[in-house]
Write a protein that binds this DNA or RNA. Structure first.
Lengths: 171, 171
DNA sequence: GTGCCCATGTAATCTGTTACATGATTAG
DNA sequence: CTAATCATGTAACAGATTACATGGGCAC
């Protein structure tokens, strides 16, 4: 009886998704996706990714793939049960309907407490930052053969809606 | 020299915000806010809230308030520096512009991998769940003198946008 | 008086972060 | 050859979760 956790963490599920979409790849490549992504908010730290992959291998969801690149790298791919596990993870309605610990919403609820001048300054700076990120994401969408396309598109929509909301409320 | 962390965690900042808006209150009352909130996604676990409040007291951001309720409860309120700390936390542009580890976006990026029938079933169930949450949040907005109003409103907007997006993409 | 909610806390565990350590391979 | 990048990992630490432990006050 191997002790098995009931559900994948968000990081584990995301790693499976990245490998599934990106084809057989190394742990390092998975990290790079996180490190370079504008909208996937993980540090991509080795201390998280390597242990997570170890867990996924032990659980039988990832296996070392035959594909190698001449380096000393290990390349991973999803197993059958890895695909099944990822399927039910992406179909987890309860989690998909939530917004996580959204740092924008949590703050927005408190902005009314600020003095008007500071609130206006904050709104202006925030809109600028959001537009900058939209630009960065849009540029990324054009340059790449893009695995992150949908996530980035949704992030852009989110930013668009929020910029509108801030303008309406704090201007 | 007391060792002081540079920035508040999301939980710490949120606790300060809850106490600031809700007036002097007990740790238990803070937990109840998290436990009952549809849109603030924390477990409200004692093991997170009590230690966090202890840290905030030690940092000088919360103090035991004079207000008591006849029980053995301790009631907390923000200090001057607690208000200042919360102000700069809610004005943290870098974090406010992000969307956190949004469980919807991460999954949406992978739904194209599902067989069409399963995808349609998932889309239908998800829309239902989202509508249910909208109803719950809307009901809450009417019943209460509401501290969570803005956060819940933004959650509703988010759900509205996503329901539209799912319908457009997966129907 | 007994069950339920108020109220506070701790212990074990898990996951993720930062920072460090190491070495292979390739581009200039 | 040497610097940058590829590549893998560990150690110390922080923060959150679940589950447990405890006890006071109130309603029936």
């Amino acid at each position: 009886m191997t002790k098995t956790r009931a559900e994948l963490t968000e990081l584990e599920g995301t790693i499976l998704g990245v490998v599934r979409r990106g084809g057989p790849m190394t742990a390092y490549a998975v990290r790079s996706v996180f490190l370079s992504s504008v909208s996937a908010e993980w540090s991509g730290s080795a201390g998280a990714v390597y242990p997570a992959i170890t867990r996924l291998v032990r659980a039988g969801f990832l296996k070392e793939s035959a594909v190698h690149d001449g380096r000393r790298s290990k390349t991973y791919a999803l197993t059958r049960s890895g695909i099944a596990a990822n399927d039910s993870w992406i179909c987890d309605i309860g989690r998909a309907a939530g917004a996580g610990q959204d740092p924008f919403r949590i703050r927005a609820a408190l902005w009314s407490l600020l003095p008007a001048s500071r609130r206006r300054a904050m709104a202006k700076a925030l809109i600028e930052e959001m537009k900058k990120r939209q630009t960065a994401v849009t540029a990324g969408l054009q340059n790449r053969g893009d695995p992150d396309a949908i996530m980035d598109q949704l992030y852009c929509m989110l930013l668009e809606q929020r910029i509108g909301w801030i303008k309406e409320k704090f201007s």
